[in-house]
Design a protein around this nucleic acid. Sequence first.
DNA 1: AAGACGGGGGA
DNA 2: TCCCCAGTCTT
Length: 355
Amino acid sequence: MSSAFLAQSLLDWYDRHARQLPWRVSPENRKLGEVADPYRIWLSEVMLQQTTVAAVKDYFEKFIQVWPTVDDLAAAAEEDVMKAWAGLGYYSRARNLKKCADIVARDHDGHFPDNEEALLKLPGVGPYTAAAIATIAFDRHAAVVDGNVERVLSRLKLIETPLPEAKPAIKAAMSDLTPEQRPGDFAQAVMDLGATICTPKRPACALCPWMESCEGRHSGLAETLPRKAPKKQKPTRYGAAFVAVDNDTGAVLLRRRPPKGLLGGMTEVPGTEWAETFDPSHALDHAPFPANWRKRTGEVKHTFTHFHLKLSIYRSDLTATLIPDQADAWWSPPDVVEDEALPTVMRKALAAALD
DNA sequence: AAGACGGGGGA
DNA sequence: TCCCCAGTCTT
């Protein structure tokens, strides 16, 4: 089947089934002349890196309310951006988001570049995001390849080479399929197809506009694609966290993590290093200061990208004014602690200590 | 080329 | 409970 025919049948499907998303211009509104806002497309695409639509929606709405334009985001304090991003994960994205906004506001007069090559130079914008912005926001012919596209096209074209070696073939297939007219809608259509029909498990082939042309389906291999190198298992690391609570105000002691690395620049409860070997009998040696630390029952479990973490939680109720000032730490009162730049693991630790 | 880098949803 | 998913940057 010709690429032009495949593209047209998918665009017809998209006109009827496009998901309504806060950053998306619907096919109907596009016909009425509405154009995408590059700032909203960029913001949504960065949030969507490694992250599902469901997880992104509320964060996107919040960011747009507080910072409606890239100039607003450039004028923001980085700390406020980190706080707003807290819980979404991959925090280097938030740091690069702010850097990128600064560059666009300062060097590009508040306008995003309109081509892949220039977009690729921006921090936090890689091959996927550059192509997505170029095609969705600027109607450029660009081959957008994300996880959905890899799955849909490896099935459609029966690409059995495992990822990531198959990436160039998939990119070439996407480029060949992408039409001159409505390239941005086509890219969004393939990604919608992957998210709703051509799912990783039990794809709904009967509902797929590409059913008749799908080599993966005809061969019976669709559900096994794309092939991937086997993943290695995650080690478990152990550590302790110390939650100090002020008797008078209920404030808890927090501090800032180093700017780079795991949870870089985010806020944390004071604690030990996280290591694969951990001696619980010496945990208290690493408390931020001597106090009547009491171990909570149970432990906080959390899984990061490349290791599992088991955290012992200690709590001490004390009088904050009697504690010597802690470097890079502060007492956070109960009414603002939820707004701190606390990643999920630290929210779990606080919940375990305070419940 | 391989590892670092979160969190959420589904079986 | 485990298992799966998914871009960019660094080394």
